[in-house]
């Protein structure tokens, strides 16, 4: 394996920024790379009004007063202080699921297998929406906050709404993002909200992935709510009618409903 410094945003190899996801995946054999490309020199680290470089570490976003509350709080409640010092905004959006079957390299559907082991097995922390094909839960608090903010991403090849970064895995395409190999997220933009909040239920009070994360953003009379930890991708909430909990994660529906109620009340004008 070799490590190269990126000289521009054309990357031929596996991009690495903070390494908090790439390094553990490499070491676990879940990611293979002949060439790692260190992109820290080519991805923006600036925070300006309504725009954040994808290279900004979560620890900086967490305490920047220009950043809307929903995103600051999502960063503050994500991971541990060390990981927030290392991990970038862009990398956080691209983190893989915490599904233990996937992490233990079981031949599940995300690994191109033909079974979702979580559906019949241990799925206490898994998805309650869109979990038919794969019940993994998307762990990014930050993605839920940006989805609620209706943020726009600029990549090295295009501009797209944050919602367009993610896709539900299907039989013929198991990916959960739409990013092409070598395509880099460069920055994130959003319009300022009138009010916003992020609430998170965790297994313990700090340093845990979301069982349910709820981001609520109000602009004028419209409130947009997005959830983390409830579907294979960050989930824009359109009611609970489509929820299909598994036998041991139905509690997530109750938790999500309660947090959504609290979050919408907190941002009400």
């Amino acid at each position: 394996m070799e490590l190269r410094q990126a000289s521009d945003t054309t990357v031929d190899g596996v991009p690495i920024h903070g390494g908090t996801e790439v390094v553990p995946l490499l070491r676990a054999g879940l990611l293979r790379a002949e060439t790692l490309v260190d992109i820290r020199g080519v991805v923006s680290r600036g925070v300006a009004d309504g725009r954040i470089g994808a290279g900004v570490p979560l620890a900086e976003i967490e305490c920047d007063p220009q950043v809307p509350e929903v995103l600051r709080e999502a960063c503050r409640l994500a991971a541990s202080p060390q990981l927030r010092n290392m991990g970038s905004l862009g990398g956080n959006l691209l983190q893989a699921t915490r599904c233990w079957y996937w992490r233990l390299n079981w031949p599940c559907r995300l690994h191109d297998g033909d079974e979702c082991f979580a559906r019949e097995g241990e799925h206490r922390e898994h998805a309650i929406f869109a979990n038919d094909f794969c019940a993994s839960a998307h762990p990014s608090d930050v993605a839920a906050a940006l989805l609620a903010l209706d943020a726009t991403l600029t990549t090295s090849r295009r501009e797209l709404p944050l919602a367009g970064l993610y896709r539900l895995p299907t039989d013929d395409d198991r990916r959960t993002t739409t990013l092409d190999p070598g395509e880099l997220i460069l920055d994130v933009r959003y319009d300022k909200p009138d009010a916003s909040v992020y609430l998170k239920a965790m297994e313990r009070k700090r340093w845990a992935f979301p069982l349910v994360g709820v981001a609520a953003v109000r602009r004028g009379a419209t409130t947009r709510v997005a959830l983390a930890g409830v579907a294979p991708i960050p989930w824009l909430l359109d009611g609970f009618e489509s929820a299909a909990p598994l036998p041991r994660n139905a509690y997530k529906v109750d938790v999500a409903k309660a947090l959504v109620k609290r979050a919408t009340a907190a941002v009400a004008g």
Binding site: L3, I16, G19, T20, V23, P24, R27, L36, D38, A59, P81, Q82, L83, N85, M86
Partner: peptide
């Protein structure tokens, strides 16, 4: 000066 996790930091980075 910032705390980081050396077990998942690449020495070369």
């Amino acid at each position: 000066g910032a705390p980081v996790l050396s077990c998942i930091t690449l020495a070369h980075a």
